[in-house]
Design a protein around this nucleic acid. Structure first.
Length: 904
RNA sequence: GCGGGUGUGGUGAAAUUGGUAGACAUGCUAGACUUAGGAUCUAGUGCUUCACGGCGUGUGGGUUCGAGUCCCUCCACCCGCACCA
């Protein structure tokens, strides 16, 4: 059991209240612990971890150091120590090194030896798996921090929904892109839902194709990536992203104004706007031309915002016949559309399927697409204008947060060069600061700490950023295995013993965040030899969310009709005031009827209001009115029982509703509407387990939650059925007690029927458990209880076994009954009952007899009766004769112990 | 648009390998008991029909002796991705 206890909510709360987040976090954890204990969960608290505990984040910092001191060797396809890389650099420079790196310069061994320390560090930084670099990040001003891509939904921060902008900042990043291919490949090894795997694949976004260089007329090179090199003869123009660095260089004088205008126009629009508006086709011609590498033809170079700077090279070769966007663009600007597909009409729309045959394409003609792709790559490579290449959409993950409540980096700076804090000095603990806010010159909160506030100060200054939420959560499962180890984050022996997490139950919202990062760190730790497995979570079940059920009242206002149409401003004010003061809430059935304004109860209300108004405002009397619907308002679900509103309670709930008037249904009650949605304070539909535990007990709550339906399915939290589960537990208790609640069980041998019930139940519970079907398990307990009640069974042996089966579901009641039975040790220490099929053997089976597949009646026959005898017995049966009605059956199918089907 | 998922009574759902559709619970109806309760017990409850019977697992088709379950078509809803070259 552990808590991922660093993060934004605690810090936001700290800013608001001025309390140290460690204190509020501690309070919250106490509350969680209370709730968990109250529910009777049997966690091993000796293994408790907290990501915000220095004893834990010491090792998060240590892992960071390992990642810093590693590079990705593409040849070996794994991470290796940076020391190995330095040896290679010493001996042969970097020319032979195949690595995931942002380093573009090539140097020899002697170059390397000649470099200054700062130069060497700068180069190594470009190889490290976590590196400091100026990168474009998602800056969220409202939260005062950068966010990772997975922390942004629909262009705004996932937490709080604040706007996000692009900003160039010096940040730590994790080179997760080095693992892109393995993160896709290894998904085959894990037993996860397709939807999560797809989400990850999608996020990583692998595309296979080729990178091709097109020369421009004046000698600049435009590199493009394409997944369809086979369509290269269909290229009729080039498009660059408006932000592409080459744009300003190649634009001819004549078009400069136009291009600048277009760049400005797209610059004004946010990324989100540009994505939302995919219908408008826009672009600008640069006046420059590229040369087709095979045909030598001149290709116009355009800029357009449908090409994204952030993907691939920020440039495309446009093939209008094969890509709809290119087709639209060509059509809009009157650019030539070349058809390179045999027998396919492309004048209306592009043909993007990969089942065509290429035509009109020199050496690629007559080849099917797949072969043409291969042939094209060969030709491109031979010509030296490009190469086959695989691209990933995945970006390196930004690892810095400009926040206080997170892991400090084990990093200090000397002359602004980062250095690692030594292992002996770890953990670098969070210093106390005066305010949890950025400094006046925009530095993160940690910049407020003075030299002496740090426990491990070194160099000129410490790193001011802290680690993101996913740092601590990427490896906690490893710490569970060895939570108190002071020498290692986990010992190799323990990691080998426990191995992977057998079952991970969690929500699918972590698909592209936590679940991807944990996989990344696990692979890294594997590469470095610290653990022996490459995937953290062997099997995963995505539990459905428990949703809330919100209740609504329907608000109406009067819509009066006046005879006089000469109303003064003063009159209007009076009327508006009157309408405001006389709102009314309609019961759901009235709200839903179309003829509501002619209903008696509503007429009566209107008449009353009319005379009230007219009495005081005679000169502007209104002649009639309708009720006009305004909106539905959330009503606190605690004021509602079975959709019926507690009207007095509602009036006392919020000052606005003090004088609320209601028009009730015929039965004198107010019925609320309802909707199933996420639980949220603003919807007044939150139910905490505490209230239910108090009302029904933890056992009832646990069983009911399981009884609701399949684990994976989202479902509304509706307590209507909870009584049924509660009654079941009472009924179960009564098996052990007489009418006066005295504990009575009988010794000796149990009835055959009771033993059958018991063993049937053992079998079912076992099966249900194996397929995580907890809802059917609870019903099977109910069935067993009903049967034993019917049998008046209070046999010690049978009831003891049943208790054990039920104990994980309802630990409290079973433990108590277990003690009453005279057991001294806890029920959790006993052995699971053994299933014996012998008790289920029946002498007779009631065969369902169907005619043409329709079941008509059942016929009890001995179980051991063979097929022929069953057929004979059925055909001779009186009821069969009735259904045969003198006809002879065409065919009789007998499945022994299952069914008889007679075909007429 | 692409990918994934889900469609069964008034409601939550069950049916594990193609073999009695709706178990279990809730809700509702009627009744019993009673220190009047969120208690306990009995009977009924998919739709339709007075009944015999007929119909019934989102739609339409197919395979099969037999389909909620397998195959194809379409529809609805939910989730994720989306100008990804």
């Amino acid at each position: 059991m552990g808590y991922d206890s660093f993060g934004l909510p605690a810090e936001q709360y700290a800013i608001q209240t001025g309390q140290h987040p460690a204190i509020t976090t501690e309070e919250n954890l106490k509350r969680y612990r209370y709730q968990l204990d109250q529910l009777g969960f049997s966690f091993d608290w000796d293994r408790e971890v907290r990501t915000s505990d220095p004893n834990y984040y010491k090792w998060t910092q240590w892992i960071f150091k390992q990642i810093y001191n590693a590079w990705y060797n593409v040849t070996a396809n794994k991470a290796q120590s940076i020391d190995d890389l330095m040896v290679i650099f010493e001996n042969e420079g970097n020319e032979t090194v195949k690595a995931h790196t942002s380093c573009t310069t090539i140097f020899s061994a002697s170059d390397w030896k000649g470099f200054s320390e700062a130069e060497k560090q700068k180069i190594l930084m470009q190889y490290r798996l976590t590196y400091l670099a100026d990168s474009w990040v998602n800056w969220c001003p409202a939260l005062g921090t950068v966010l990772a891509n997975d922390e942004i939904k629909d262009g705004v921060s996932e937490r709080g929904g604040h706007p996000v902008e692009q900003k160039l900042m010096r940040q730590w990043s994790m080179r997760i892109t080095a693992y892109a291919e393995r993160l896709i490949q290894d998904l085959d090894e894990v037993d996860w839902s397709e939807s999560i795997k797809d989400q990850q694949k999608n996020w990583i976004g692998k595309s296979i194709g080729a990178s091709v260089v097109f020369q421009t007329e004046n000698g600049d090179a435009i590199e493009v990536f394409t997944t369809r090199p086979d369509t290269i003869f269909g290229v009729s123009f080039m498009v660059l992203a408006p932000e592409h660095p080459l744009v300003n260089k190649i634009t001819t004088e004549k078009y400069q104004e136009n291009v600048a205008q277009y760049q400005k126009q797209t610059g004004l629009r946010t990324e989100r706007d540009r994505q939302a508006d995919i219908k408008t086709i826009s672009g600008a011609f640069t006046g420059a031309y590229a040369i087709h590498p095979f045909t030598g033809k001149k290709l116009e170079i355009w800029i357009a915002d449908y090409v994204l700077a952030s993907y691939g090279t920020g440039a495309v070769m446009a093939v209008p016949c094969g890509d709809q966007r290119d087709h639209d663009f060509a059509g809009h600007f009157g650019i030539e559309i070349i058809n390179i597909f045999k027998g396919i009409e492309i004048s209306e729309k592009a043909y993007a399927e990969k089942d065509a045959v290429i035509a009109n394409s020199d050496f690629l003609s007559d080849l099917p697409v797949k072969e043409a792709i291969r042939a094209a790559i060969v030709a491109i490579e031979e010509k030296g204008i490009g190469k086959g290449q695989t691209n990933y959409r995945l970006r390196d993950a930004v690892f810095s947060r400009q926040r206080y409540w997170g892991e400090p980096f084990p990093v200090y700076y000397k002359n602004e060069i980062p250095y690692l804090v030594s292992d002996e000095a770890l953990p670098v603990t969070l210093p106390e600061i005066d305010k949890y806010l950025p400094t006046s010159d925009g530095e993160p909160p940690l910049a407020r700490a003075k030299r002496e506030d740090w426990n491990a100060f070194d160099g000129d200054r410490m790193e001011y950023n802290t680690m993101p939420g996913w740092a601590g959560s990427s490896w906690y499962f490893l710490r569970y295995m060895d939570p108190h180890n002071e020498k290692a984050f986990v010992s190799k022996e323990k990691a080998d013993y426990w191995n992977q997490v057998d079952l991970y139950i969690g929500g699918s919202e972590h698909a592209t965040g936590h679940l991807l990062y944990s996989r990344f760190w696990t692979k890294f730790l594997f590469d470095m030899g610290f653990i022996s497995f490459t995937e953290p979570f062997k099997k995963m079940i995505n539990q459905g969310m428990i949703l809330g059920r919100s209740s609504f009242v329907y608000r109406y206002i009067l819509d009066p009709i006046f005879q006089s149409n000469e109303l003064s401003e003063n009159d209007n004010e009076l009327i508006i005031k009157f309408i405001k003061e006389n709102q009314v809430y309609l019961s759901k059935d009235l709200h839903e009827t179309s003829k509501k304004n002619s209903l008696d109860s509503i007429r009566k209300f209107i008449e009353e209001k009319k005379s009230l108004f007219n009495k005081t405002n005679g000169h502007i009397a209104f002649s009639d009115s309708n009720l006009k619907y305004v909106n539905a308002l959330y009503a606190d679900i605690h004021l509602i029982d079975n959709d019926k509103l507690d009207i007095e309670g509602f009036r006392n709930w919020l000052p606005d509703y003090k004088n609320a008037e209601f028009i009730l249904s015929d039965d004198g009650t107010y019925t609320c509407g309802n909707e199933v949605e996420k639980m949220s304070k603003s919807k007044y539909n939150v139910q905490t387990p505490d209230e239910l535990v108090e009302k029904f007990g933890a056992d009832t709550l646990r069983c009911y939650e399981m009884f609701l339906g399949p684990l994976e399915q989202a479902k509304p939290w509706d307590t209507k059925g909870i009584n049924g589960v509660h009654n079941f537990l009472r009924k179960f208790w009564r098996l052990f007690h007489d009418a006066n609640n005295n504990f009575v069980v009988s010794d000796g041998l149990a009835d055959k029927a009771s033993l059958k019930t018991l063993h049937k139940t053992i079998k079912k519970i076992q099966d249900d458990l194996e397929r995580y079907s907890f809802n059917t398990a609870v019903s099977n307990f109910m069935i067993a209880t009903n049967e034993l009640t019917e049998q008046k069974c209070n046999n010690r042996e049978v009831l003891s076994q049943l208790l054990i089966l039920l104990s994980p579901y309802a630990p409290h009641i079973t433990e108590e009954l277990w003690a009453l039975l005279g057991n001294e040790k806890s029920i959790t220490q006993t052995v699971f009952p053994n299933f014996d099929p012998a008790y289920l053997v029946e002498a007779e089976f009631a065969y369902p007899v169907s005619f043409n597949g329709k079941m008509r009646f059942t016929l009890p026959l001995p179980t051991d009766m063979d097929k022929e005898a069953v057929e004979k017995a059925v055909l001779e049966n009186e009821q069969t004769l009735k259904y045969l009605d003198g006809n002879s059956p065409k065919k009789v199918i007998v499945v022994q112990g299952k069914i008889v089907n007679i075909v007429l």
